[in-house]
């Protein structure tokens, strides 16, 4: 128990709309061990973003419990960092000031100098040295997202929640950022929950991939990704990875109701793998 950082216990949740209750999560249980990486994939509108809001404490589930490091989540916790598809940098601040923003909210023992040094160090890790004093509008989309990642990590959160952070980037920038994620976690371990539409991304980054069913969502399939670290992009083109991708793709189609639940067909030897983002 103690080594679980994120735990959802039979969580159910519904939105109240004008047309009545709209159930989004149904008896969802998830366990993410400390310092491991969990990716969540599923059909559009299945409640993935709801999941991030529940784990971060921005919302409380109707039923069931959310636990973070043995604390039941009833309100937002400063041990959480978040990054979204939209990097939401504050245009009136420099990149460095943006990264430091959480330090103005969270109580910290770090001195100003330590905060500054940490911010510069993180920016260096993601390759933004030299851009500390630039405005967000002077940066490309990928660079903004890198800065956003630094901001979400500045206060040393136990849990990093990523809601499709690479979704709006081009394929090459995205792969670059995947590698950056590995670098960041090698530098200082943290538990990560990633919401994504990109199956290759989930396999490349995660230790376990959870496939959510269609709405209301439960954990339909859990795939353990046993590719050893350090991972490289080449690892995505091994037969084992291709097989995992095929499994995930099949599970997604089941979740979408396009296919019946049966074992995924063996991919052909020359398989290029499933088309990433096909579910988007």
């Amino acid at each position: 128990m103690t080594d679980l950082t994120i735990e959802l216990r039979e969580v159910s949740h519904a939105y109240r709309t004008a047309a009545g209750k709209l159930p989004v999560l149904d008896n969802l249980s998830i366990k993410v061990p400390k310092n491991s990486f969990c990716a969540v994939v599923g059909p559009s509108g299945c409640g993935k973003s709801t999941l991030t809001r529940l784990v971060s404490g921005l919302m409380i589930p109707d039923e069931g419990q959310v636990w973070l490091s043995n604390h039941q989540v009833t309100s937002p916790r400063p041990t959480v960092g978040m990054a979204f598809q939209n990097p939401v940098l504050l245009e009136w601040r420099t990149i460095l000031q943006n990264v430091l923003l959480p330090m103005e909210i969270v109580k910290t023992k770090m001195t100003k100098d330590e905060q500054m040094a940490r911010a510069r160090h993180l920016l260096d890790l993601v390759g933004l040295t030299g851009f500390e004093d630039k405005r967000p509008s002077e940066l490309s989309g990928g660079m903004r997202q890198r800065a956003s990642l630094c901001r979400s990590l500045i206060h040393r959160p136990e849990v990093l929640i990523l809601d499709e952070p690479f979704g709006a980037l081009d394929a090459f920038t995205r792969e670059d950022l995947w590698c950056t994620m590995h670098d960041l976690r090698a530098e200082e371990p943290f538990t990560c929950l990633l919401i994504t539409h990109d199956l290759r991304e989930s396999v490349f980054l995660a230790d376990q991939v959870i496939v959510l069913s269609g709405r209301p969502a439960h954990a339909q399939h859990i795939l353990n990704v046993d590719i050893p670290a350090p991972r490289t992009l080449d690892d995505l083109y091994t037969p084992k990875a291709v097989e995992m991708l095929a499994t995930l793709r099949h599970e997604i189609q089941v979740a979408q109701g396009r296919s019946v639940a049966e074992p995924a067909a063996k991919p052909a030897a020359h398989a290029r793998g499933p088309i990433p983002g096909a579910m988007g």
Binding site: S56, P76, R77, M82, N86, V88, W92, E104, I105
Partner: peptide, 24 residues
């Protein structure tokens, strides 16, 4: 998302107003 960035850290509505809503 702007609101969530600060709210997820436990910021009050007043803080969100001063730090984000007003300058924006």
């Amino acid at each position: 998302e702007y609101r969530d960035i600060l709210r997820s850290l436990g910021a009050s509505n007043l803080t969100i107003f001063w730090k984000i809503a007003l300058p924006k």
